[in-house]
């Protein structure tokens, strides 16, 4: 720590800072700027107009309580976000709890943790299509259900449906819950659990009164990850929903493909605002920097 030479610190941070300036900050600023530009079929035109925003919310207030397309899309996205959040939280917490409190040796902990992490380093698209032989009309799940006599005909709702979208999200992103919750649990002083036990708390009471409150930071970080991923997704919803389910991300992607950049930018700004509001509400609870 040689504080008399701060230049070194700047030089060391410079490459990283430059990458985020060029490929994150400037693009976001440009997105906000272009969202108030005009456009026609051939080009985008510098302007200052709120038409793009107006078009997105066209008739939305007047139509209430009926939902306009934009509100419907957001409602559907939020619904998926909530379902996926709930599933990943319950599963992620259970897995983290097992790893942190029931696995005794560090080596086994590391090995089991790696087993959970390895799929994260493989292709998401492949992990999505790997559900086809299981959930498809002639897939293994249908075979099993028919074989057991639980259903009388093949089920179509298993694949390319809301169900398969949620399943794929849980499959892909539960890890984002496991890691921060596990991290929080590993910091819990074990003597607290003993104290709770000595004081006569049941296992369940220890869980709800000691473990869960102390895991709040991990739960919050995991929740932020999962919810923001689902809110901005267009790939999982596209592939697993058979390109039939709407999402904000997909709206933006389609507008981009039609070269309607200002409209896409306006949608992106709104999406970003919604996501930031969700995160703000959650970060009031925790200081991320203390958790590393």
């Amino acid at each position: 720590m040689r504080s008399h030479r701060p230049t070194v610190a700047y030089l060391q941070a410079a490459p990283l800072a430059l990458v985020f300036l060029l490929f994150f900050v400037v693009p976001l600023v440009l997105t906000v700027i272009v969202s108030v530009w005009d456009y026609n079929e051939y080009q985008i035109i510098p302007d200052f107009t709120f038409n793009n925003y107006r078009e997105i919310f066209e008739g939305c207030i007047a139509d209430l309580p009926a939902l306009c397309v934009t509100f419907k899309t957001y409602w559907s996205t939020v619904k998926y976000g909530f379902l996926v959040w709930l599933c990943t939280l319950v599963i992620g917490f259970t897995i983290a709890y097992f790893l942190a409190f029931h696995v005794r040796t560090l080596t086994v902990q590391i090995v089991l943790f790696l087993i959970c992490t390895i799929p994260f380093w493989t292709s998401n698209v492949i992990r999505m299509i790997s559900w086809i032989p299981l959930l498809g009309r002639n897939g293994l799940v249908n075979d099993a259900l028919l074989g057991l006599g639980l259903v009388s005909e093949r089920q179509e709702w298993l694949l390319f449906s809301g169900f398969s979208v949620v399943l794929a999200f849980v499959h892909l992103y539960t890890l984002f819950m496991i890691v921060p919750i596990f991290n929080s649990m590993m910091r819990i002083d074990r003597t607290l659990l003993e104290a709770a036990n000595d004081a006569g708390a049941s296992g369940w009471q220890t869980l709800t009164n000691v473990v869960i409150p102390l895991c709040k930071p991990g739960i919050t970080i995991g929740s932020i990850f999962v919810i923001t991923i689902v809110m901005g997704d267009f790939i999982t919803i596209g592939v697993m929903g058979g390109q039939q389910i709407a999402s904000i991300g997909k709206v933006i992607q389609v507008e981009m493909s039609y070269l309607q950049f200002p409209a896409a930018a306006a949608n992106a700004v709104i999406l970003l605002a919604v996501v930031l509001m969700i995160i703000y509400a959650m970060t009031r609870l925790v200081d991320i920097r203390k958790e590393l």
Binding site: L28, L30, G249, A268, I279
Partner: peptide
């Protein structure tokens, strides 16, 4: 900023870079 990059939806980042 670095943490924000992790949680800003990827489609927004991608769109921004495309525009840039």
């Amino acid at each position: 900023v670095v943490v924000a990059s992790l949680i800003v939806p990827s489609i927004v980042v991608s769109l921004g870079i495309g525009l840039e």
